[in-house]
Design a protein around this nucleic acid. Sequence first.
DNA 1: TCCAAAATATGATATTGATCATTTTTCATA
DNA 2: TATGAAAAATGATCAATATCATATTTTGGA
Lengths: 239, 239
Amino acid sequence: MSTKKNIRIPCTLCPGKEHSLFSDLPREDLDTLSMHKTCIRYKKGQTLFYEGTRPMGLFCINSGKVKVYKISSEGKEQILKLAKPGDFLGYRALISEEFYNSSATVIEEGAMCYIPKSNFLDILQKNPAFFRKMAKRVAHELGLMEQKLVTIAQKSVRERLAATLIMLKETYGMEGDESNLIDIALSREDLANIIGTATETVIRLLSDFKTQKLISLQGKKIKVLDAKGLVREADFYGR
Amino acid sequence: MSTKKNIRIPCTLCPGKEHSLFSDLPREDLDTLSMHKTCIRYKKGQTLFYEGTRPMGLFCINSGKVKVYKISSEGKEQILKLAKPGDFLGYRALISEEFYNSSATVIEEGAMCYIPKSNFLDILQKNPAFFRKMAKRVAHELGLMEQKLVTIAQKSVRERLAATLIMLKETYGMEGDESNLIDIALSREDLANIIGTATETVIRLLSDFKTQKLISLQGKKIKVLDAKGLVREADFYGR
DNA sequence: TCCAAAATATGATATTGATCATTTTTCATA
DNA sequence: TATGAAAAATGATCAATATCATATTTTGGA
């Protein structure tokens, strides 16, 4: 069985707390959350929740990275989003009062906090400003998802890959010298499942981009050498 | 110029009011809305709002049908959803406090009610149950959009067309004998812009389905002859 | 450190669906 | 009801990408 270990991390010490959805929650509410939550270390490959199951709480990523995806009827995985420390998972299903419509699996190990549904709903209930903030977030994500739909429906695989690399660089780029290194452990297959194509196609296109000196490949990690060039490939203008 | 005519339709008389988002709004709030809204007849081709503009209110469709779509950088249209009497448009942008991320154009003429932003937000503010309902709706739509994304990313055009025809039949099917007639005036181009393909491809596939006796074509309108067969084409099982 | 399995890479081929060109039909309206 | 424009239909061709097959490399455990 899994070797999950229960650990305790106060919400007030959570990385990225300042920019998270909880950022301007009153101290009192934060303490309530800290009190009731559980934090567990997950290893790569372990799953936080499965599509089709009933959500019993809210996940908050303390460290590590997670992919959120759906499995189609043919068994193919489609990654809907990637989550990093400070991100929350599972609120869509809690707010819509539905089962999970996607699964979430750890791609880089770390600690995940779990806030029981009742505590989360309590705070939503008694804190209208927080509820508005959550609703605003969900509405914003709907907008993002609509844009993604258009991109997948209308852009070529090459364009989508270039656009995804730029997005990854912006989200997972490192500090200073290494700022062009995309710091997330995505396999070629994961990348293919983000943009909706075959693994071989991603591999071919990456080596193509490498030949064009747009990127360099350092093992699994990708370095962006020519962001402008990638932007050109992505046909980013006018979006 | 357009020949928009201001007409008055009390919300209490709105078709589909019973099942709309406003269904269990207190009488008092409904009257406030009725008081402040304007209702205008729109002809086919007229646009309710444009992507990139600031939302100033909420649209409610009294009669007629509307398509909601985005235009990609290459100028191609992608239809995100179709709206029918009783449906609301524009609340995503109001709740996320963003500009419209899509445009809405009338495909079958009818009357559209317009509720000023301030009135809508007032009611949201003072009526937590209604706000929860709106949030729930947006979260549900996010789930639908995620499913659409997976479908477009992973299913063939043939499967998507078959699935779309089934959805259209379920949403716009008529009563009784004519229950298999899809009662919405969509051009082949519109259909192509829903499923994300070329118009010619839709035309070819439709005549294919016709040859297979899955559908029949009566002018612009499509009749579903063999729903089971279409479901098979759509590979619907297990979704 | 070595081994097996997984991931990556590369090649050959097949298929889907886009694009371009042309014809036919439908439809609005003059 | 005639006519011009838009929509639908059909054909020919081509490009992008999936699929299948087979190395080669990397990696995580025993």
